[in-house]
Structure formats: structure tokens, C-alpha cells
Simulated scan of single mutants.
Amino acid sequence: MAEKNPSSHRAAPAAGSRTPRRHTRRKGVLGVAVLAVLLVCTGTAAALYGGHPGAGIRQQNSGEPAAAVTADRTAAAPSSASPSPSSASASAASSVTFPERGTGTFVRADGGTGVFGHGRLLRYAVDVEGGIGQDPVQFARQVDAILDNTTRGWAAGGLWSFQRVSTGPVDFTVHLASPHTTDTVCGRYGLDTGGRVNCSGGNDVVINVKRWLQLTPYYQGQPDLYHALAINHEVGHRLGHNHVTCPGPGMPAPVMMQQINGLHGCVINGWPYDDQGRLVTGPPAT
């Protein structure tokens, strides 16, 4: 909203006033206005990106998983080139309830899995925050089904294998947390998740229960596919992958693309590999 300019209400200058001085005052007002616009734009960008766009993400090399630090930002609305959710689906998603805060402590899912995949073994645990109404065993089974997928998951590429454990050392932990606790954990890595998005930092993969239950605009009515995307994206950062962009119109959106910010001509996809065992990727994001 434009502010009123006090000079616009000034009386006309008296006869004999010096024109150069009047021009100088107008230039000063114009300079202040330009500076104000620049400050507003800068502040807006800082708020959107939390001061950490792409912070701390390391590219995979030498087969070593990176301790990635990243949060996925939200956009106000889907791009016009991407399909929009039906009003019924959007309404159903927005009606899903969840607590903004849990107990702040996590319950680890019991049991574990065998080893899936044929690459470097990464052991993971699954924790669910108390007080958010989610069952640790059920959530762990969903995570297992995604990470143990040797056809299209990260275990399909021959680089990594996964095994869930409930005791002993782990390479990373998948947390399901309330928006408040998500912000707290992610904030330890300098990330601003705004109570809305997921993050990956160090050995912590944090899934916001709000996103898990409400999904995103593009995945309304397809919770299993969105859950695959959320886990594969954040674990992908743990493996050292950076963000990429859409490879071309009509092609599957890579899981390392920030799909919540728009599909940009791609179609939804929650898996890192396609049916032919090829990595779904695109140009590096800038």
C-alpha cells in the first residue's frame, strides 16, 4: 500500500522561489521512496527464504552421505501451468486436524527391518512425537515401505541399502513432529520452517505432521504418493542430493525438485527412479 506523500499536499511555492531548490527537494523525496522500495523488497526476500536459501547442502561424492541442511519453502499457490486440486479435495485436506504442539519428546518405533538394496548400508530409526495422535508403528511401516522400495526408491540405484533399527547407532532418524517441534528441531540447523514444511539437517529428517496429513495442493487425494515424495526428498538431502528443476514439460517431476513451489510443466512424481531404473532428475536449481 502506497503511503501518502506529505509534499503532495504542500501549497504552491511563493513567487520568486528558486526553481533549482524545488528540484533538489523532489529528488530527495524520490531517493527516499526508491530506498524504501528496495528495503521492502529485501525484507520480503529474507522472510521468504529465512536467510538460508539452499544452506549447507553438500553434493554426494565418493559414496559418502552428506549431513545436508535444508528446508523446503512454500509458495502461495500452484503455478498456472500445473494442475490445481479440486475444491472438494482441498476442503477435505484443510479439515484434517492436528495439534500445533506436541509433548516435545519422541517415542521410537519398536522392531526393525531386514536390509534392502545393494549399496552402502544406512541404518535408520523412526521417532514420533508424543501428543500428536500418530502411531509410531504405523508411521514406521509407511517409512519402511518407501525406503525399502528396491524398484523405484533410493534403494533401487545400487548405491544405498537401508535397514530400520530401534536400538544401537543409526545413520539418520526420521521424525514425525508437530509444527512447533519441527520449527524447534530445524531451527537448530539455522532453518526457518515456518510451522509448515519439512526439513533435513545433520542426521535428522523431520516430517511436519501438518504436511503429512494435509499434503500439498498438487497431491490432494493421493496421500501415499505425497508421503513417498516427502520421505524421498528429505532422505535424498541426507544422501547428499541438491535441489533440481523440472527437466521438461510433461516429464515426471524429480523428487529433489521443490514441487511445493510449482511443477513448472512437470507432472507429479514421488520416486527418485522411474520404472526403467533410471534416476529422475533435472538441471540444478539456482
Rank of each mutant, 00 (worst) to 15 (best):
A155W: 13
T103S: 15
A230R: 01
I231C: 00
P254Y: 13
L159I: 01
W212A: 03
N149T: 07
Q60Y: 09
V32K: 05
S94L: 13
G262S: 08
R101C: 03
L279W: 14
K27S: 01
S91Q: 09
P252S: 07
F98S: 01
A228D: 06
V185W: 07
T70D: 14
R123F: 10
A285G: 01
V96T: 11
A68G: 15
Y124V: 09
G202V: 06
R10M: 12
G240W: 02
P6E: 01
T113G: 07
G240F: 08
G50M: 03
G158V: 03
N242P: 11
K210W: 10
K210S: 05
A36W: 05
N5L: 09
Q258F: 13
R73G: 02
I231P: 01
V209I: 15
P284W: 05
V170N: 02
A36V: 12
W271Q: 02
D274S: 05
H175S: 03
R73H: 11
Q60D: 10
G56H: 06
G187R: 06
A81R: 09
F139G: 02
Q59E: 09
G277V: 07
G187W: 07
V165H: 06
G262K: 04
N269T: 08
C199L: 06
H23Q: 12
E3K: 07
T19R: 08
A76Y: 12
S62R: 10
S86Q: 00
A253M: 05
S80Q: 04
G63T: 04
Y218W: 11
N203M: 12
L48W: 10
Q214S: 08
H52D: 10
H175R: 14
E64P: 00
